[in-house]
Amino acid sequence: MSYLLHLATFFGIYAILGVSLNLLIGYTGLVWIAHAATFAVGAYAGALFATKLALNFFLAMLLAMLVAGILGSLTGWIFSRLGGDYYMLASVSWNYIVVSVLINWESLTNGPLGISGIPKPSLGELSFAEPTKFFLLTLVLLGIVYAAARFITNSSFGRVIKAIREDEQAAKVFGYNTLMYKVAISGMGAAMAGIAGVLLASYIGFVDPSSFDVMESIFILAIVVVGGFANIRGSLVGALALVLLPELLRFAGFPAEIAAHVRLGLYGLALILFMLYRPQGIIGEYKF
């Protein structure tokens, strides 16, 4: 049972990441391969606010969302002026820079050793330390992110970002300041990923730079690709499929060390096969 709860909690965290990345890549057409870096910023910011400043989890989470959101808007502002491949390459580089900063800025991040002793969430008398309660908290936050993403994409704002994805020049001709829209959606997506980061930090009680490399970004990308571009519900399906997949490998009897590599290979294979045979994902509406 506790094993299932553990998987369910991970599903919740990755579903938040998938939904938020889908806003960028599926709805706006920004191929952002640095969501692990945003995830890391949220996790580290939350961890630092909760340990060094001893702030309450929820306050730390709001502040971490703010930090991730501001950084996300800033990178969005710099990078999203660049067309297609340049944007993608810049994002990969950004992921690399963030991990390099986490490793090397030892006075703040404690370097490769990471930050430990991150407390579990609590609100007055109510503590979420128990796994069931932590899972419920994750589920509630996922629900909020899901609702927010649905609201954003169904609003007039959502129609503009989809127009940017289809034809940015045309959107400009209609008088939309497309750069500002891209900055805004980058900030929103990053703030959501920040929630996932804080949840991970608090759930594991520990963060270190190795969990946030480019491969992790590719994993989050695979969630979106498998679930389907421009489909919020699809990202939930994608997160479920890709969080459960490695568990099947475990049952198939791969030793733990090999299993991690096999998992990476399968994510890679999934990206290739979906691009070749089903670019719209399992339940996607939009053929990328």
């Binding site: 057409g29 391969i33 297609g84 590719i218 990476l264 290979g265 994510y267 290739i272 990328f288």
Partner: peptide, 30 residues
């Protein structure tokens, strides 16, 4: 080559190439 025949968008090529990158790296690690 199959993607070219389907006239896929550039992003599809890029994502597929990221997949190949992950697959090759995992083959080397295994």
């Amino acid at each position: 080559s199959p993607l070219r025949k389907k006239k896929a968008r550039a992003s599809v090529f890029v994502i597929a190439s990221l997949g190949i990158f992950a697959l090759l790296q995992s083959i080397l690690s295994i």
